[in-house]
Amino acid sequence: MQPIVSTQDLTKVYGHGATAVHALRGINLAIQPGEFVAVMGPSGCGKSTLLHLIGGLDRPTSGKVMIEGEDLTRLNDDQVTALRRRKMGFVFQFFNLIPVLNALENAALPMILDGMRPNEAYQRAREWLERVGLGPRLTHRPSELSGGEQQRVAIARALASEPSIILADEPTGNLDSRASEEIAMLLRQISSEWGRTILLVTHDPRIAAYADRIVFLKDGQIVDETIMESRNGDEVSAVVGKMKEIGD
């Protein structure tokens, strides 16, 4: 199967000469359709840079980024933008939403930017907002929503345009632990129930633990990788069933 995202010897250097900072040193990473991958590492390890390069927000110094077989580094700004619009959904730590637009309009924004008819865009945005549990808050402005709710809008926005991959950069970095847990669970749900591909960058092990695979980054290199063995569903529900029984 062709991976959604693959990088080849991806390198990013900031600055020149003696002050040069090697943010990434030859990253080779492939993300398969439907995978939920978390990138972890200490701050400054280059994990955000990796996400930015994959998202076409920044240009690599060398190496390639392939999105569904298309080399991102060969496209010009407008082409990258269009690709971002159609194939990627972003969720960031801060400033996720445009403050002057309400939840519905924010969620519909990428589709409208892509030239979709507003009615259709709003219809889809509404469906996704309802799915992430924001049905009753469609017309609220970001300032009227809690941090967790704002992040949900951002997730709905990322999902609504039916992208190939969702790129989340520390989506819980600005949230309390309860809201973080909820966002993490939502991401898990998006992956297992709705079959989306997710690339998550985080430094929070608790959030990363929801992923199918964790990639560890250190000093701009992948140092380790862990694939989670999910217990099969039956076993899980058996355990839960037993616990409930005891509780009663």
Binding site: G55, L57, A82, R86, L109
Partner: peptide, 11 residues
Amino acid sequence: GMLRALGANRA
């Protein structure tokens, strides 16, 4: 920047 990230081009 956010709009750009979401797919708004320079134009």
